[in-house]
Simulated scan of single mutants.
Amino acid sequence: MNRRLALKTAILATGVAIVAACTPMMEKEPDIVDIAASNGNFNTLVAAVTAAGLVETLKGDGPFTVFAPTDAAFAALPAGTVDNLLLPENKDQLTAILTYHVVPGAVTSDQLAGQRLSVATVNGENVHIDGRNGVKVEQSNVTTADIIASNGVIHVIDKVLLP
């Protein structure tokens, strides 16, 4: 009797191993950084996040809500601002600006609709959000809302937020 049970167990284990080997690996859903890096409209943001040493943080579990300025939003800053911020000696200032664009938790546009809020950012300062007519964050407009990532949500904005 024990030999039969041992044989059945061995056959079952072999079958499970074969199925596991033949099943393709599930790929991880893209996180906030993956989405920004693959988009093409966030090259400056990705460069800034990298220079500030925030890549691993924004690839972390989160959840985070990121108000992501486009390349055009960065280009609208005064000439030389981005280049200056990317210098190693300005890392603290760059980090303060970038973390001002991040709110803890995953907040979607339907949670903002019809409300005026003051929300604490990761850098500790508050941003003012007005969801009564579209969504505005400070003086920027959310142009694309609710890009869902594995660790949060991205809202595309048309201006860089400055603390």
Results as ranks from 00 to 15, higher is better:
Leu5Val: 13
Leu5Phe: 06
Ala6Gly: 14
Lys8Leu: 15
Ala10Asn: 14
Ile11Arg: 13
Ile11Pro: 03
Gly15Ile: 11
Gly15Thr: 08
Ile18Asp: 02
Ile18Val: 15
Ala20Lys: 02
Ala21Asn: 06
Cys22Gln: 12
Thr23Arg: 01
Met25Glu: 07
Met25Phe: 03
Met26Tyr: 06
Lys28Glu: 09
Pro30Phe: 10
Pro30Gly: 14
Asp31Pro: 15
Asp34Pro: 15
Ala37Gln: 04
Ser38Met: 09
Asn39His: 13
Gly40Cys: 11
Asn41Leu: 05
Asn43Met: 10
Ala47Ile: 04
Ala48His: 02
Ala52Cys: 04
Gly53Cys: 01
Glu56Trp: 06
Leu58Val: 07
Lys59Tyr: 06
Asp61Met: 05
Asp61Arg: 04
Pro63Met: 01
Thr65Lys: 10
Thr65Trp: 10
Phe67Gly: 09
Ala68Asp: 01
Pro69Tyr: 12
Thr70Tyr: 01
Ala72Tyr: 00
Ala73Pro: 00
Phe74Ser: 14
Phe74Asn: 03
Ala75Thr: 09
Gly80Pro: 03
Gly80His: 11
Val82His: 05
Val82Phe: 05
Leu85Lys: 10
Leu86Ile: 03
Leu87Gly: 12
Pro88Ala: 11
Asn90Arg: 13
Asn90Ile: 09
Lys91Glu: 04
Lys91Gly: 03
Gln93Phe: 11
Thr95His: 06
Ala96Gln: 09
His101Arg: 02
Ala106Asp: 08
Leu112Ile: 10
Leu112His: 13
Ala113Asp: 15
Leu117Glu: 06
Ala120Tyr: 12
Asn123His: 14
Asn126Leu: 05
Val127Pro: 02
Gly131Asn: 09
Arg132Pro: 00
Gly134Trp: 02
Val135Arg: 07
Thr144Gln: 11
Asp146Arg: 08
Ala149Met: 13
Asn151Gly: 00
Val160Phe: 05
Val160His: 06
Leu161Val: 07
Pro163Asp: 14
